[in-house]
Amino acid sequence: MGDRLRLFRAGDHRRDGFLLGVAVGIFGVTFGVLASASGLSAFKATTMSLLVFTGASQFAAIGIVSSGGEPLSALGTALLLAARNGVYSLSIAQTLPTNGLKRLIAAQLVIDETAAMSKAQPVPEVSQEVFWVTGISVFIFWNAGTLVGVFAGQVVGDPLSWGLDAAFPAGFLALLLPHLSDRRKRLAALLGAVIAVISIPILPQGLPVLAAALGAVVAAGVGNKKGKRRHP
C-alpha cells in the first residue's frame, strides 16, 4: 500500500493533472476534426466543447447525428453518457466548495479525469487542489484542442493509431489502485467491473458505466454483520 500511495505524494499530482489535460487535448483535436467533418460549424463545435464539456457525450452526439440518426436519440444517448458525472459529483462533493460561484464553476469541471484524480488523494485539501489543477488543465486543453481540430484539420492524425484510447483506462486504473487497499471500495470496484461486463451486451450505450455504480450500493451493505450489530 505504501508503494502505491508513493505515486500520489504531494507535488506529483500537479504534473499528473497537467499531463491528463494534454492527453485530453489531443482527443479535443480529434473532436474538432470529426465535428467539422460531420458538418458542424466552427462556432458550434467550440461552443459545444466549452458548454457541454463532456467528451464521451460530444463524440456520441456528433457520431449519431452525422450517421443520420434522430436528433432526439442522439441527445438521449449523449445524456446517458453524461449521467455518470452526477454520480461523481455525489461522490466528491465533500471535498469541493459547498456553495457560491466556486461551486457553480467546480460543477462544470466534474468529469472522469477530475473525479479519478481527486478521489485518489486521501487528504481533503490536497484532493480539492488536485481537482482544480486537473479540471482547469483539462478544460483549457480540451477547448484548445477542439479549436486546433476545427481550424487546422488533420495535423494530428488518428489518436487510435497512437494507442491514446488505451492510455485513459490505464491512467484510470492507476488512479483506482489506491482505493483497492480498502476492503469495501475493492468490493465496489470489483462489482462495478462485473456489472459493466454483464451489461455491455444487453444495455444501450452509456448505461453500463452508470449501472456499475450499483456496485457501491451493494458493497456498502456488506461487512456490517461481523462488527457492530446495531439492532439486535
Binding site: V87, V209, A212
Partner: peptide, 24 residues
Amino acid sequence: RVLSGLTPAVLAGLIVVQTLDGGG
C-alpha cells in the same frame, strides 16, 4: 459508505467499457 464507493465502482465500470466494449 455508498458515496465513497461510487467513484471506484464507476471508474472500474468505465475502464471495462473503454477497453472491452466493441459497440455492444
